[in-house]
């Protein structure tokens, strides 16, 4: 018997492949670790930062109280500026705390009725909704598996944004619609949150999900620049996806994809 063929020694190739895989695994581990460290740092730092800021705020208000009869207009203005700057700092630190906390703590999976989530949000935002005469429309949203605390936060941020970035002389109208789709064998809820607000440039559609991204000056619109970053994080943890579409002056649409069932027990 004879055979014809070529014989190649692939031992070296195999070996270098294995080495590469090990290296990638190690790097990934290192990266995960440094990510965790960073999150822990953000959490601790922001927690500790709150302390001195609380003091600045308390003593500024103490000073205001102490001087209430003798302070002149200029002095009052300066103290007000101290107050509003510390207020802003507080909100940002709280944002970082929530952001890092949401990354850090695992949440159990449960059945979440998005209709109930929306009801809760409408109750919590009641005052703002009244002030802006906002209309929120939704019906028959799905029940999905997920962490209710996180999903609440997700829709709260989106609705809050839609109200915040509404047009000055037009009442905000926010509509949530949903349908069930299948993508790569996974059954997903597709939820569209649509508003009639000021919108944004299409080229910023991805940027808005970055941490500390803001398209407007903080004097015009208050906020931490973390709201949508948080939304994206929450959706990623649920193995879903989000993207946005908009045009300046023509409202925005947020497309949210969330699996109906979670394979994981925690997110």
């Amino acid at each position: 018997m004879k055979w014809i063929g070529a014989f190649t020694d692939i031992h070296d190739q195999k070996e270098s492949e294995q080495k590469l895989e090990a290296l990638v695994a190690q790097r990934t581990l290192d990266l995960e670790r440094s990510n965790e460290d960073l999150q822990r740092f953000a959490h601790v730092a922001s927690h500790d930062l709150k302390e001195p800021i609380r003091k600045i705020k308390t003593f500024a208000s103490r000073l205001q109280d102490e001087l209430k009869n003798s302070i002149n207009e200029k002095g009052k203005l300066y103290l007000d500026k101290v107050q509003s700057a510390t207020d802003r700092m507080f909100t940002m630190i709280d944002g970082v705390l929530i952001y890092s906390g949401i990354n850090a703590s695992e949440q159990p999976i449960e059945n979440v009725d998005l209709n109930k989530i929306m009801k809760d949000i409408e109750t919590d935002l009641e005052l703002l909704i009244q002030q802006k005469a906002a209309v929120i429309q939704h019906h028959q949203l799905p029940i999905i598996e997920g962490a209710s605390v996180l999903l609440y936060q997700l829709f709260y941020n989106l609705i809050n944004n839609s109200i915040k970035f509404s047009k000055p002389y037009e009442s905000p109208v926010i509509t949530l619609t949903s349908n069930i789709i299948e993508e790569e064998g996974i059954v997903m809820a597709r939820i569209i949150v649509e508003d009639n607000g000021i919108g944004f440039d299409a080229e910023n559609a991805e940027k808005i999900f970055d941490t500390f991204a803001r398209l407007h000056s903080k004097d015009k619109y208050e906020g931490t620049g973390l709201g949508l970053a948080l939304c994206k994080k929450i959706i990623q943890r649920h193995k879903g996806d989000i993207y946005a579409r908009s045009e300046p002056g023509k409202g925005s649409q947020f497309f949210i994809f969330l699996p109906l069932r979670q394979e994981q027990h925690f997110v």
């Binding site: 609380r54 705020k57 308390t58 208000s61 103490r62 205001q64 109280d65 510390t86 507080f90």
Partner: peptide, 9 residues
């Protein structure tokens, strides 16, 4: 929770 404002204290 500890307040941030003397008025609240």
């Amino acid at each position: 929770s500890k307040p941030h404002d003397f008025k609240e204290v």
